[in-house]
Computed example of a mutant assay.
Amino acid sequence: MSIVLRSVAGGCLVALLFGAAACDAGTVVSVPSAAASSPAPGSSGFFGGTDLAWVEITIAMNEELLPLLDLAPTHSADAGVRALAAEVRAGHEQELGVLRSLHDQAKLPSENPHKGMPMPGMVTPEQVTAANATQGAAFDKVLVQHLRAHLEQGVKLALSESKAGVEPQTKSLAAQVMASRGRFLARLTGR
């Protein structure tokens, strides 16, 4: 990926992280490919900077959450929390399949620069280790706290993608992410 493209994607990521839709639909970058087969703006496979940043950061956020969710069956005292963790995990796995396909279509680098990056809603390995040291109600409190932060940030990022993204498949997935995160957040009410 060219330096210019990474710079645009990086700038869009900063805007996404701070809740701004600074990367408007006019900031469109096509992923380099054969000139004869380049997708047209607004068509499937034509990724803007916001699309690229959203795909990478959502992959990282989903992957970093999974180890925490994996602790629920053996650490949670609440059947509702265990069920929610299993549903969130299944949904995130499904999203990851689509996100990885988009990642490949966009020809993004194999190393994700956002993996392990401290940011709102990103579950860190240290947080998973701390959660692993708890059981029962204490674990449930930690899981719910991290899950809520993850879901809320996921909604914000998906909203930015839906407003400023240009690639149709990516925008469609962002709409699905907003809806699913909203449903999961509603189930956390009162917890």
Rank of each mutant, 00 (worst) to 15 (best):
G154P: 08
A149F: 00
A164C: 08
H146Y: 12
L147V: 01
L173P: 07
Q176S: 14
A158G: 09
A175K: 13
Q153G: 00
V155W: 01
A175I: 09
V144N: 05
E167W: 06
V177M: 09
L147K: 07
L159N: 12
L159M: 10
R148K: 13
V155K: 07
V144W: 05
A175V: 12
V155R: 11
P168L: 12
A149R: 01
L143W: 00
S160C: 15
K171N: 08
A175S: 15
A149T: 04
L147M: 11
S172E: 13
Q145I: 00
K163A: 13
L157Q: 11
L159C: 03
H150E: 02
S162F: 04
A164Y: 05
R148G: 07
V177A: 05
T170R: 05
V142Q: 08
L157R: 11
S162I: 02
K156H: 07
A158C: 11
V166Y: 00
Q153C: 02
P168Q: 09
L159R: 09
V144H: 04
A175Q: 15
S162V: 10
S160A: 15
L159D: 13
A174K: 02
K171E: 08
P168S: 14
K156P: 02
L147I: 09
Q169F: 03
V166C: 09
Q145K: 08
H146G: 04
H150R: 00
A174S: 14
T170Q: 06
Q176T: 14
T170Y: 06
S172P: 00
Q153Y: 06
L143Q: 02
L143K: 02
L157G: 10
L173E: 04
L159A: 10
S172N: 12
A158R: 02
Q145C: 01
K163C: 02
Q145N: 06
A158D: 06
K156E: 15
V142A: 01
V142W: 00
S160G: 13
H150K: 05
V177K: 04
E167S: 07
A158T: 12
A164I: 02
E167V: 04
V155N: 04
L143G: 03
A164E: 04
E152K: 07
G154S: 08
A149E: 09
K156C: 10
K171Y: 03
A174P: 07
Q169T: 12
Q176N: 12
V166W: 03
L147A: 02
L173M: 08
Q169V: 01
L151T: 01
T170P: 03
G154Q: 04
V142P: 00
Q169S: 15
L143C: 05
V142S: 05
A174Y: 02
L143D: 01
R148V: 10
S162H: 12
V142K: 00
L147R: 01
V177L: 11
S162Y: 10
E161M: 07
G165A: 11
E152M: 10
K171F: 02
K171M: 12
L173D: 07
G154C: 08
Q169A: 14
E161L: 06
S160I: 14
Q176E: 13
L157A: 10
G154K: 07
Q169R: 15
Q145S: 08
A149Y: 01
S172A: 14
A175N: 14
Q176V: 06
H150I: 02
A174V: 08
P168T: 13
P168A: 11
A164S: 15
K171R: 15
L147Q: 04
S160M: 07
Q145L: 05
R148W: 06
A149Q: 10
L159P: 00
H150W: 03
K163E: 13
